[in-house]
Write a protein that binds this DNA or RNA. Structure first.
Lengths: 342, 342
DNA sequence: GGAAGCTATGCAATCGTTTACATATCCTCG
DNA sequence: CGAGGATATGTAAACGATTGCATAGCTTCC
């Protein structure tokens, strides 16, 4: 079909070695030769065949990002960050979701094992046990970084937001407004983000001499529906909290909608804080006060961490990059209403 | 590093040819041999090296999706659809955005030309002239499909929503509510979606004996900011329209916010219709009436079209798949207020 | 019993590069 | 002038699979 390096060599009267060198190490050939070869290359629009090159070089020049759900818009900005950094280094980005990666008993690592990619950016912290075990093999572990979520075990390098600091901002904000009865709406049980965020809330409340109301509040995932469903649960809490910190924006938005359906107003009756700062947060009514994660930056950092790792700069074994977060104060939080106190 | 087919051959006492056949055409080897080989394969966790296989087979088993902006959450669902269909056929999904694909005078096609991918799903209809020209080369054109957006020229296969039908739904809805002065808020000039949607509006208005107000209204992109900026422009329209159909949800949401800032209420003073049905549409206040595109399905169809194309089923040269849309009626549209008429 | 047809396997070429090593040319310097 | 060191290029062996062709053993059937 298209021309190979042999054709170019023949057409320019040199050996394939010289053509190869002209293309990848131009200063290793004489100017005369270089110009002659390049002329032929340009005239015919020759491009090296990356399969052959990769086979020979034993690298794929690409990495795979695994997310829980490709359809979740939360990840877009992270992809943008990954791509931005990777493409600058000539590396391609493949994407998949855990579900299809694991379908049919497939290994999470098939891409790695088949040498289709050089490394993995894993954005899913809830992998099945079998997958976790595989990741820890010594020749694999050095090619994986986690981002956003991570594994409690295993010491993988990872990039994450400062979840605890975020919750401290949220708690301080609410306490500053005068709230004392503050609840935490949980995400998926066992999820590392949920665990971390809850711990952050507990920790910060404690520093104000406060504590969460007894029972765990919320169950299910990070979704709108779970938030909506939690409204009924909220109504049963005694004493009723004046503010709720939610494990995600989706939960907060869902909860707001559920509370509204039960006749409660935000922030008049209940203050709400989310986590993530998804685009929608700014547009719900009232706009959601939330902890903002810099998702683009998570992508950028994860990519560059992985790239360094692959380059053999095995500098820090269990390196963890923690990114700062900020509180976006909007309309869903206000001082608790005094009327309800007595 | 890891085992090659030679090692497996040696360990199981057969030739590499037999190992290869055992793995890819199991019925071509005897049961005895198959079991012996598979035992060795399983014991050592052997996986074929895809670089070598791809080089030999002259295919990459992967396709590249090119979007205008990876950070735009609009594309998430499309990626999910693409991935879902591709992975079922053992094909990988690479993603990039036009910007990085074209950076540094790179060709849009470098991935194709370098045999890194078998085909392209292009979701960007606003490619620079040079890129368009390249795409039309005969050996390239058969490996490309467009989705969402497309090129007016060139007869590429493409998957798209029924933009005109969507606008007919919008117009009929508004006219049914009693609106007669309906404006169209344009997206980027020259964008094929904008052109098509505007034409849909014009066409449908005409069938009701109506027409757009004279001057083009709106300029810039599909973004929130452009919508917000268009509010001032809207106020200058005489007579002032009672309803606006926007080229995208983002534009509609931005416009709503701009109008609000100028003291106009939606839908009391102006009705608004968007296009896309992005997640946020449901949560803005008032919730946005909009034309819903099935983005997952766009992905699914685009992937299967490309796969068929690559399989050589050159059935339909300039095949166009048009997907149905539906109108989501929400709170941003209402009958025009009578008070303003006189 | 032998030709014809299967089935199961092996041999070796091939895919398109990169690169270690060898070679040839030219320059420099004592 | 000849040794030694650059510099520029070529030769050919990988990289790890797939597959056309050849071969050997077995059936089958007249």
């Amino acid at each position: 079909m298209s021309l190979s390096i042999k054709d170019i060599a023949r057409l320019s009267g040199v050996s394939t070695a010289t053509v190869s060198r002209t293309l990848s190490q131009p200063d290793r050939v004489s100017e005369t030769t270089r110009e002659a070869v390049m002329a032929v290359v340009d005239r015919h629009g020759y491009r090296v065949n990356s399969m052959a090159r990769n086979l020979r070089r034993q690298r794929a020049d690409s990495v795979l990002a695994i997310v829980p759900d490709l359809g979740n818009p939360f990840f877009s900005a992270i992809f943008a960050g990954l791509q931005q950094t990777l493409s600058a280094g000539g590396t391609d980005l493949l994407v998949t979701d855990s579900h299809s990666a694991l379908r049919g008993g497939q290994s999470l690592l098939s891409h790695l094992r088949e040498a289709r990619v050089d490394g993995l950016v894993c954005l899913d912290g809830e992998l099945p046990e079998a997958a976790r075990a595989e990741l820890k093999a010594p020749d694999i572990a050095t090619r994986v970084v986690f981002a956003c979520e991570w594994l409690a075990e295993g010491d993988f390098p990872s990039v994450r937001s400062d979840n605890r600091a975020g919750m401290r901002l949220a708690v301080d904000h609410l306490v500053g407004l005068g709230h004392r009865d503050i609840a935490y709406l949980s995400g998926p049980g066992g999820n590392v983000l949920d665990t971390e965020r809850r711990a952050g809330v507990v920790e910060s409340l404690a520093s104000h001499g406060l504590a969460l109301p007894g029972p765990r509040f919320g169950s299910g995932d990070f979704s709108l529906e779970a938030g909506r469903a939690a409204a009924a649960e909220f109504l049963a809490l005694i004493p009723r909290p004046t503010a709720v910190i939610c494990a995600s924006d989706q939960l907060a938005i869902g909860l707001a909608s559920g509370l509204h359906a039960h006749g409660l107003r935000v922030p008049d009756d209940v203050s709400l804080v989310g986590f993530d700062d998804i685009q929608t947060a700014e547009f719900v009514n009232p706009p959601l006060t939330t902890v903002r994660q810099d998702r683009l930056q998570i992508g950028v950092q994860a990519a560059s961490l992985l790239l360094r790792q692959l380059a053999g700069a095995n500098c820090a074994p269990n390196k963890i990059v923690t990114l700062p977060v900020s509180l976006q104060v909007r309309g869903s939080t206000a001082a608790p209403s005094l009327a309800r106190k007595p």
